[in-house]
C-alpha cells in the first residue's frame, strides 16, 4: 500500500526508512501499516530488534513478507484498525499511505488510539515543484516522486505539511518530532520554520503522541 516510488537499489536502505528507524526505540512492539515487501519491518527487526507486525493491502506483498519471516496480514488501514485494542503497540507506523486512505482523519485517530506513539510519513503536496506546475502550467502536478496523473492516482487525499500539522492539532496529537526530507529521502538538515519546510521538503516524517 506504500505508494512512494522505489528510489533505492536492492540492499540499499530508503532514506525515510532510516529516519523512521531512528525514531523507534529498541525492542518496541511495532505495527507497520502498509508493509509493502517488508523492507522497513526487516530493517527494524535487524537494527531495533522490534516485536513487529505488519498490515499490507496487496496479498502478493503479504505473502512475500511472510515468506521472509515477517508477521504480516492482509488488511486495509481504512477498515481493519478497529480490530486492535487501545494502546496495543509502542509504535504504529504509517508510511506514505495516509493520502491514499478514504478517511485520513479517522485513520489518524485510530493510529493514535492503538499506538502509544505514531510515526507518519507523508508526501508534501505544497512542495515548490508542485506549486510551479500548478501555477505556470495550470496542470495537476506530476513529478518523479508523485508520478501519477490525476485520473489514475491512488492518492485521493493530498495535504501539505502545514495541513497535516493542523490535523494533528485537531486530534490533540503532539508533534514530538518532525523531519523534512528530500525526494530521495535525505534529511534536510536545516532548522527552518514551517513555512520554509512546506516549500522545500518533498516529504516529511512525524513522530506523534497523544
Amino acid at each position: 500500500m506504500n505508494l512512494a516510488p522505489r528510489q533505492t537499489r536492492p540492499g540499499e536502505v530508503r532514506g525515510d526508512h532510516k529516519v523512521v528507524a531512528s525514531l523507534v526505540p529498541e525492542g518496541a512492539r511495532v505495527l507497520d501499516i502498509g508493509s509493502e515487501d517488508g523492507a522497513l519491518l526487516d530493517l527494524l527487526a535487524r537494527e531495533r530488534h522490534i516485536d513487529g507486525r505488519g498490515i499490507e493491502l496487496s496479498q502478493a506483498g503479504v505473502n512475500r513478507c511472510v515468506a521472509r519471516g515477517l508477521s504480516v496480514i492482509q488488511g486495509d488501514a481504512d477498515k481493519d484498525l478497529s480490530d486492535y485494542p487501545d494502546q496495543a503497540f509502542d509504535v504504529v507506523i504509517l508510511s506514505q499511505t495516509l493520502q491514499a486512505t478514504r478517511e485520513p482523519k479517522e485513520v489518524m485517530s485510530e493510529l493514535l488510539r492503538i499506538g502509544k506513539r505514531v510515526i507518519v510519513s507523508i508526501p508534501n503536496f505544497a512542495h515548490w515543484r508542485n506549486r510551479m506546475q500548478l501555477l505556470f502550467r495550470g496542470r495537476m502536478p506530476v513529478t518523479k516522486y508523485l508520478p501519477y496523473q490525476w485520473y489514475d492516482t491512488p492518492n485521493i487525499h493530498f495535504c501539505s505539511l502545514r495541513d497535516f500539522v493542523e490535523l494533528c492539532h485537531e486530534l490533540d496529537a503532539e508533534v514530538v518530532k518532525a523531519v523534512a526530507l528530500s525526494a530521495h529521502g535525505n534529511e534536510i538538515p536545516v532548522n527552518a520554520p514551517w513555512w520554509v519546510w512546506n516549500i522545500v521538503a518533498e516529504q516529511a516524517v512525524f513522530l506523534l503522541h497523544r
Binding site: 511472510v66 496480514i73 492482509q74 480490530d83 486492535y84 503497540f89
Partner: peptide
C-alpha cells in the same frame, strides 16, 4: 488482532 497477537495471514 483483538488480542494484539503476533499474526501472519496468507491467502493463497
Amino acid at each position: 488482532n483483538a488480542a494484539a497477537a503476533n499474526v501472519s495471514f496468507v491467502e493463497i
